[in-house]
Design a protein around this nucleic acid. Structure first.
Length: 272
DNA sequence: ATGGTAGAGATTCTA
């Protein structure tokens, strides 16, 4: 697909099993034409990753970090990519929730951080729920990591599993005690963002106050009719790239595809 | 107040 020189389309998608949904990738490419596609919840050991399907779509450069059954992240790219020298193992669990890559773009390379933040279980109390404690510890570690090395020419994206703004959920009042929108989580996410001067790329295009969701539960009878969504997936850019933000998309129709993920792809375009 | 669905892989966990 032809486009202006120096433009880079970056997509984040929690695909919820890359083996089950590799057949949806052509549809995604038709809709958003990503140059770099970052996946989460691939649920796929590295030796079983569907490389041939990605290669056939023109993603000649791929880095994957997966495991059996759970988690898993991957970066598929039309441009050359290389692993960043630092690959933090958040909370020391080795659970495949992060992949840092350097992307070959015009000018200096771009640093890209693909995250799958722990969902945190059902009970929003770190004393009663170890999964929630893990989520908060992960966020604290990532905040300190950002503080130690302020980002430049960098993109941080993925399923951050938190809807930070009142308009990032279908009902702010009803979700205040629901994991993903509790004050302790939204404040932690805001601290992380501010620690690095990260800019919320999508909210540069969709003003606060306007509802915006990237995830709809599988459990709804009719996800589109009830529209009880949350914005759990994010694309942040370092503040030196704020002026390069050139476009965005949230591919809501993907939630209605056959055998869909419960998350939809989120795209940001940069003019580099 | 409750339960609802989906995926992986093993008879249950995670989301």
């Amino acid at each position: 697909m032809a486009r202006a020189r120096g433009r880079l389309r970056i997509v984040s998608w929690n695909i919820n099993s890359v083996r089950l949904r590799a057949g949806l990738l052509p549809e995604l490419v038709r809709a958003l034409a990503p140059d770099v596609l970052c996946l989460q919840e691939t649920k796929c050991p590295d030796d079983a990753f569907p490389h041939a399907e990605a290669e056939a779509l023109g993603f000649r450069h791929r880095l994957v970090r997966g495991m059996k059954g759970y988690n898993g992240v991957a970066v598929l790219s039309r441009r050359p990519i290389a692993p960043l020298p630092e690959q933090p193992d958040w909370c020391g669990r080795g659970d495949c929730r992060y992949l840092g890559v350097s992307v070959d773009v015009p000018g200096e390379p771009l640093a890209l951080h693909d995250f799958y933040v722990p969902a945190g279980g059902d009970i929003p109390d770190p004393e009663a729920n170890p999964k929630f404690a893990h989520k908060l510890a992960f966020l604290a570690e990532a905040t300190e990591w950002t503080r130690r090395a302020p980002p430049r020419r960098a993109v941080l994206l993925g399923d951050l599993n938190i809807a930070p703004l009142p308009e990032d959920v279908w009902s702010h009042r009803e979700l205040l005690d629901v994991v993903s929108h509790t004050p302790v989580e939204t404040e932690a996410l805001t601290r992380w963002q501010r620690a690095g001067g990260w800019v919320d790329g999508v909210r540069r295009f969709v003003p606060e106050g306007e509802k915006l969701f990237t995830w709809w539960s599988y459990r709804a009878r009719d996800w589109a009719a009830s529209d009880r969504g949350r914005r759990l997936d994010h694309v942040w850019v370092s503040d030196d790239l704020a002026g390069a933000l050139a476009g965005h998309a949230v591919l809501k129709p993907a939630r209605g595809w056959a055998n869909p993920s419960d998350h939809v792809p989120v795209m940001v375009e940069l003019a580099l």
